[in-house]
């Protein structure tokens, strides 16, 4: 299993690199125009490579299970963000090189007098700058997630269309009809992908609705949303996975949000999500009424004990509502009467906000489970661990001898906690390959 994932991981990285550099190879095929100045050719090469990488951004977020499997969805979104900055740098270098080495080209910025190829290019770069700023500073600019998501898709499509127009009108390298045809086909392919993700997929979801069975409050300002399939068999999932939830309206509503399942994967009749009140959408979960229709696109994610079935022992580390996917795994293991040793570190603010506190106690006799609660603000007579989940606390309770591949660690919590715990685990000699993590703030 692990080897297959490594092969998949390397394959997709190689594919990405091959696709990113493909245009440079393509430009050298057929009738190649005579060479111009070095900096001009470099500028054009960076423009073409940047445009291709821009289009690959669509593939990264199109929820292809096979692409995400080896890395995890959170890492794919992180890469999407990081590579977008690299891509923007490459694209920006395209006009900057022209302006530096041929200042006369600055005249192309005068959109009133400039030819259409320049107008389209300038507009594409400006919109790209807007796209990146509204994404990096979405929270700071207080842009609503749902609205941002619609504009992000529309802007991205518009930018690629403008850039395609720019290279076709510039004509220099696309000097033969077949070369233009390849680029147009390439652009249409990505447009088609977008149509699939945003239109065809929702139509498929429309035929597979769920209804709200109940909404119950949990400790730690969280709500559990129990759903059952409405007139369809629903779907199975691996414990620890997540799905995109569209509540209310239709699956076209675009108000999709990713949440982890909290229910047991062995319970095929219904699914449950446990959601903490964090943002605008999560605050409305409690307002959902029994019988209301919702749409669920899933399952996704690799964060599951079922992906590491060979382990002799599992260690779970949760922070706050990060317990959700781990709860799904614990409930599933209990339903399967799994007897392997399980250790749960659970960091919470205080004793009253320990989500699933009572149910976790009931799982202890059903499983070979030890729970280490770590409280930031413990009650007066607390004799357990206190403060943050430190390296010392981990070391005190973790098995002394680590057998590679025999113990698998699952970590889910707020980003600062995850970063700290991951560092601590590595210092304690836990192999990186045995640490599996999922960040719950994907976007």
């Amino acid at each position: 299993m692990r080897r297959r994932l490594v092969v998949q991981a390397v394959f997709w990285i190689a594919t990405y690199i091959a696709l990113a550099i493909a245009p440079l190879v393509l430009l050298k095929l057929g009738e190649v125009p005579p060479g111009r100045e070095y900096w001009r050719e470099l500028s054009v090469a960076l423009g073409f490579a940047g445009l291709t990488m821009l289009t690959l951004q669509f593939a990264l977020t199109a929820r292809f299970r096979s692409i995400k499997a080896p890395y995890g969805a959170d890492v794919i979104y992180h890469f999407h963000r990081q590579i977008s900055l690299v891509t923007f740098g490459l694209i920006l270098a395209h006009p900057l090189l022209l302006f530096i080495f041929s200042p006369a080209t600055l005249g192309l910025l005068n959109v009133l007098a400039a030819p259409w190829r320049a107008r389209l290019g300038v507009l594409a770069v400006l919109l790209l700058l807007g796209l990146i700023l509204t994404s990096v500073w979405r929270k700071r600019l207080a842009i609503d997630y749902s609205a941002w998501r619609i504009w992000h898709g529309l802007l991205a499509t518009g930018i690629v269309a403008l850039a395609m127009g720019h290279i076709i009108l510039a004509r220099h390298y696309l000097n033969q009809p077949w070369k233009q045809a390849i680029w147009v086909a390439y652009g249409l392919f990505w447009a088609g992908l977008l149509v699939y993700v945003r239109i065809i997929k929702p139509i498929l979801l429309l035929r597979r609705p769920f209804v709200v069975e109940r909404v119950t409050p949990e400790r730690g300002a969280a709500w559990t949303l129990v759903l059952r399939p409405d007139g369809n068999p629903g779907f199975g999932f691996m414990p620890g996975q997540f799905a995109w939830l569209t509540a209310g309206r239709s699956p076209f509503a675009e108000a999709e949000h990713p949440f982890s399942f909290s229910s047991s994967a062995a319970d095929t009749g219904r699914i449950a999500f446990t959601i903490k009140e964090l943002g605008d959408f999560t605050r409305t979960i409690k307002d959902l009424r029994p019988g209301q229709r919702v749409y669920v696109d899933g399952p996704f994610g690799h964060f599951s004990v079922d992906r590491q079935p060979h382990a002799a022992e599992y260690v779970f580390i949760a922070g706050g509502v990060g317990i959700t996917p781990i709860m799904s795994m614990l409930r599933t293991l209990a339903d399967r009467v799994d007897v392997r040793p399980l250790l749960l570190f659970f960091a919470s603010k205080d004793w009253d906000s320990v989500t699933f506190r009572e149910e976790l106690e009931t799982l202890i006799p059903r499983l070979n489970l030890k729970i280490v609660h770590v409280l930031e603000k413990p009650p007066a007579q607390w004799d357990g661990e206190r403060g943050f989940l430190s390296q010392a606390v981990l070391e005190k309770h973790l098995p002394k001898e680590w057998d590679r591949n025999a113990i698998e660690v699952f970590l889910c919590g707020p980003p600062p906690m995850m970063a700290a715990v991951e560092q601590a685990l590595l210092k304690l000699g836990v192999p990186l390959g045995d640490i599996h993590s999922e960040r719950f703030n994907l976007v």
Binding site: I17, M53, S437
Partner: peptide, 30 residues
């Protein structure tokens, strides 16, 4: 950690593309 690896991967891919673009321009003008 995996996120840091992906950040470095993004930087490396950017550098690789830059090197290939430099090579492309060199081939075009040589």
């Amino acid at each position: 950690m995996r996120q840091r690896v992906s950040t470095w991967l993004a930087i490396c891919i950017g550098l690789l593309v830059l090197i290939l673009a430099l090579a492309f321009a060199w081939m075009q003008t040589a």
